[in-house]
Nucleic acid binder design. Structure first.
Lengths: 343, 343
DNA sequence: CATCATTTTCGAAACGTTTCATCGTCCTCT
DNA sequence: AGAGGACGATGAAACGTTTCGAAAATGATG
């Protein structure tokens, strides 16, 4: 900018005024300056600007896994929203690891991001410290946490799983396996609760041996399924609490030589685009990813627009059970599957 | 830092020296400074540091689509590599749009990223300008471009598709449809070339009506498949040049009432984790995503480490044909599929 | 004890912007 | 004609670091 000012024989203040439109500059100087900018190929240095302005027009976004289609979709939508608003997005993957997440968020805050969207934080204390420490607005995604007062977008996990399990019960299933993610993360907690309540509502016993915990990865789903299928009285249906784990479940039942839905019914959380073109077409709980992403982005953009003091807003969205053909009516002949799909 | 210096009754220069270890500071002052840092909860301002140092320890990464599993995997691996090296990654999705990509890269350069990894750039001229303008190292991913001399990691797309098509020919297919992405992007160009050469090598005619172009999205695959299947002499096999498009292909053949592989054989580019648990299990060309991501990261990290003047390095990796059960031997009874899989 | 070498600390400039108070100029109004 | 306003342009300070040369303190040596 100094060079531009010299070349145009004006002061840097005038150049700045022209570029930002913060003051009127005469046509004559404008022309000289613009020419100089072109000649020199000047680009404003965003770092210096950020330092002076105290704003980076960048937000931080952390997700557990970018390979999980659910998060991929959400990230993509959030990206687009901030793109439109002229913000850049700094993405970090925490790999479901608390320390990593802590490091990442610290990194982001050090870089003076203007705001933070944090998906699926693990530990309440860490989370609380983050929200308190950061003097920037924070939006929580897919995770609610007692005592942490900030904008939040979550799914009604409990009722979503309740509906899914109830559907299985209605099909005649009595022993339903459940594969959960780590229990200390609220969505996982709520999903298990939905499972238990559905069984209780149907007057069925809740048996601990039917509930397994994993760490969200495919291999966890695989191992958990193997355990469930080696029970002496094995379940006739399995519900898996996330997408990567259900892949593990499918691999396990394939390796054990069973087939779905003939031998075992499968349902899971999180829909994916190809779920109705391959067999079995999985019955899933679809999250409204578009809405989740947009709402989270809107909440943060609203804060960034200056609405700092409004009380924390907590949004809860509803999931939707997508019934396909991976669950069969128990005791009914196989031919009945087709009918059940139209249910 | 000023506050810390005051609280510890030292100069800011000394605080800086201690924090960065750029000079020895006496145990006594060190102790006072560290205490002050703790008391105040001081965090170094990375923006001011970047301004002074001329380096942000941030790299930019652009990909066409984050929802394409291939790019998701690559992004994830690149992320991890730079994470380990203490760099942050700024991710941008270009949505296959040239203007968007241009804007994104400009945005990244304005923010003084230390380096750039650009996946799948569309236009040669734009690309050349980017590489020339940016006074930071640039690594090209999944795209090679005449006249642009910079580090590059690409797949040997041509031979990968050649192998896949040859496999289909060996199964007895004579009319093989091909669904390509935009022709002006080198991988797409090379893939089509592989297709043509495989047919020619087998002495088969290359018919234009069998080659369709789309813009990488599911809907493009759907439309292209519909067109291919409405030909009066329709193909017995279809190869789709990327992952989202093959989903469209599968939906089209489902909607038309055909089934795979009985009525039509399907193969595609890009493997995905669930491809061998659902039916049909797609025969795919798997890219070595791990290697691609790591190599790209290594090339850039090497430049960032100071190796600026080495001549551009061009890495070409090999794809691998993953034969599953979505292609059937033509003319043979259906039972023969199982045998062909072991081929 | 004076001198010199070495270690430790510091003041001040610089990075590239934005912003604010100030200063000319020129116009308008009494 | 002189005063007052409006407008355009500018100099300089500030943002929070790093760094360099210089100053101060310490230790060693003759």
């Amino acid at each position: 900018m100094l060079h531009v000012a010299e070349a145009a024989r004006v002061s840097v203040a005038t150049v700045s005024a022209l570029i930002n439109g913060t003051a009127t500059v005469s046509p004559e100087l404008s022309q000289r300056i613009e020419q100089a900018i072109l000649d020199i190929g000047y680009k404003r240095n965003a770092i210096a600007r950020s330092l002076k302005m105290g704003t980076t027009r960048t937000i931080g976004l952390t997700v557990p896994h970018i390979t999980n289609p659910f998060f991929t979709d959400v990230v993509s939508i959030i990206q687009q929203a901030f793109d439109r608003a002229g913000y850049a997005v700094m993405l970090c993957c925490t790999d479901e690891d608390l320390n990593t997440q802590d490091d990442q968020i610290r990194l982001l805050l050090d870089r003076m991001v203007d705001g933070l969207i944090v998906a699926r934080v693990g530990d309440g204390a860490i989370l609380k410290r983050i929200v308190d420490d950061a003097n920037v607005p924070v939006v929580l995604l897919d995770r609610v946490c007692e005592g942490v007062d900030t904008d939040t977008v979550v799914l009604d996990n409990q009722s979503a799983v309740f509906d899914a399990i109830t559907y299985l019960v209605d099909l005649g299933h009595r022993r339903i396996g459940y594969i959960s993610g780590s229990f200390d993360i609220s969505p996982m907690h709520d999903r298990v609760t939905g499972y238990r309540e559905a069984l209780q509502a149907a007057g069925l016993p809740v048996e601990n041996e039917l509930v397994r915990f994993g760490n969200f990865h495919e291999v966890d789903g695989y191992n958990a399924t193997m355990q469930l299928l080696s029970l002496h009285d094995r379940p006739s249906a399995i519900f898996s609490a996330n997408n990567p784990m259900v892949i593990g479940t499918m691999k396990a039942i394939r390796d054990i030589g069973l087939s779905c839905p003939e031998d075992i019914s499968i349902a899971c959380f999180d829909d994916f685009p190809w779920s109705d073109v391959f067999q079995p077409q999985l019955t899933t709980v679809a999250q409204p990813v578009q809405a989740i992403g947009e709402q989270a982005a809107n909440l943060l953009l609203d804060r960034l627009a200056g609405n700092r003091d409004a009380p924390p807003r907590k949004l809860t969205l509803k999931g939707r059970l997508m019934i396909r053909n991976s669950c069969r009516p128990l005791g009914a002949p196989l031919g009945a599957i087709a009918q059940s799909i139209s249910a």
